[in-house]
Amino acid sequence: MSILEVRNVSKVYTTRFGSARVQALSNMNFSVEEGEYVAIMGESGSGKTTLLNILAALDKPTGGEVLLNGRDLTEIREKELSAFRRDNLGFVFQDFNLLDNFSLKDNILLPLVLQGKSVAQMEQLIDPIAARLGIQQLLAKYPYEVSGGQKQRTAVARAIITSPQLILADEPTGALDSKATAALLKVFREINSDGQTILMVTHSTDAASHADRILFIKDGEVFHQLYRGNMTNEQLYVKISDTLTMLTQKAVKVEAP
């Protein structure tokens, strides 16, 4: 069953006096199945950020609907939104968004504290997750004391500790070196094989080549999609590269005449 459904979503930004209209998304349609690992690729300005903001319920579409587990995000009242986000979504950002005044442990526990969980429950939840992400030795440290890769793994731990329906990752490898990137992608693969649904927006072909399915968006629409099928990461990488090349050339062709 599909956990996320995006139906005919469009988003139009108007400037303050309404003189200029920018179509960020036009008639976007796709769905994500439970346990799936989906990457979304696209150029700058293709509408990736807008889409992610809408999926994260930070922004509302001007048309269409977004269903998370059958519930329409656009219908949720402002008051419940934060709680809804907290309970159903996990976020991983490019710049980690860890709080410097909390230890890694407290950063990870933050969503649980916001949910009002008891200390015993928190202790029970954090240990296996920290162990799985290889940061159990670092829990007492502070974000400025650890490397970028460790920060991002902390952010992943924070995202999955509430067992969300869906993890939204926004360029999670954008600020990492190649080694840390590889480690993080491995973590994503692992938590995905545990059944966690992941939606990742990325520029990186390498990162995308770890996903099950890749959606290419362009000019606010889903332009193309690739399924992994039986391909290895390397094969998928080549396929993605080709697709991207094709996309760019096509764009040139379109604009040429």
Binding site: L58, K79, L81, S82, A83, R85, R86, L89, F91, F93, N97, L98, L99, L110, P111, L114, R158
Partner: peptide, 10 residues
């Protein structure tokens, strides 16, 4: 950051 992680404005 807190808002992004799910803290409401209230």
């Amino acid at each position: 950051i807190l808002t992004k992680v799910g803290m409401s404005h209230d």
